[in-house]
Simulated scan of single mutants.
Amino acid sequence: MIDNEQPLSAADLIGRRLLKVTTAFHHYRDDAPSLQHLWLHLEGLGPVRCHTPSTGVSLLVDEPHGPYSMDECGSVTVVENASDVPVTRFVGQLVRSVREIRYDDGRVDFTAGLTLQFPDGGVRLLGLDDDLIIVLQDRQPGTGGGLT
């Protein structure tokens, strides 16, 4: 295991088995819930938090927190292996590859997201304005599969 709050690179995830997934959803009072954090519990690393520090995505070894209420901004719920989160379909599989999705306009350069490939497909994790968006990719690129 790696010490908590230690930043990781995308390459640190390669070859690790996904053991379980934990999510934290922010429930706003007047809006649909949004994914705030995603923890990938990886063999040999422990829980890795995919965090959106405002723009982009960062990876940290960090234990999941519990649910909590926020007076003006709703509440946060924490769920293990939520079936409605696409990455849970890959629990038990090895991470085959990870690729950073970069944003660079000449003035600003950051990791906007990650693509994780597993034996049975992959996901794209994108950070957008403090929310995490997950896009399922059913097949490896170039094999005729599309995004869903």
Rank of each mutant, 00 (worst) to 15 (best):
V79W: 12
I101T: 09
R16S: 06
L19T: 10
S34R: 14
H37A: 09
L45P: 03
F118H: 08
Q93P: 08
A11C: 02
H51L: 13
R89H: 10
L114W: 01
A11L: 10
E63R: 14
G15L: 04
L59A: 00
V95H: 05
T88W: 05
Q6W: 05
V108I: 14
D30I: 08
D62I: 09
T55S: 15
M70I: 11
L19D: 12
P67K: 07
Q6D: 08
T77R: 08
T143C: 11
I133P: 00
G44H: 03
V79N: 13
A32H: 14
M70N: 11
G146R: 10
D131I: 04
L59S: 00
W39T: 02
D129C: 10
F90I: 07
I134L: 15
A24E: 13
D130G: 08
Q117N: 10
L94T: 12
D12Y: 06
V21K: 03
D138C: 12
G145H: 02
D84R: 09
M1R: 11
T23F: 06
L60D: 10
C50A: 12
L19N: 13
T143F: 05
R89S: 11
T148H: 11
G106L: 06
T23R: 04
I134S: 08
P67N: 09
L128G: 05
S34N: 12
I101R: 12
D12I: 04
R107H: 14
L147Y: 08
V79A: 12
R89D: 08
V98S: 07
D138T: 13
V95Q: 05
D71V: 09
L8W: 00
G44M: 06
D12L: 05
L114S: 05
T55P: 00
S58C: 12
T22L: 02
L128P: 01
D12P: 02
D104P: 01
G127V: 00
A112S: 13
V85P: 04
V79G: 06
L13T: 06
E80H: 10
A82D: 15
I2C: 02
C73G: 01
L60A: 11
F118Q: 08
A112H: 07
D12K: 07
P47A: 07
H41V: 15
H37Q: 11
S9M: 04
G122S: 06
T148S: 14
Q140L: 14
H27F: 14
L125A: 04
G113T: 02
D129E: 15
F25Y: 15
D130N: 13
P7V: 03
V57L: 14
G106W: 05
S75C: 12
G74L: 06
S34A: 15
L35Q: 04
D109I: 03
L114F: 07
P7F: 05
V57R: 00
I14A: 08
P7L: 10
Q36G: 09
H37F: 15
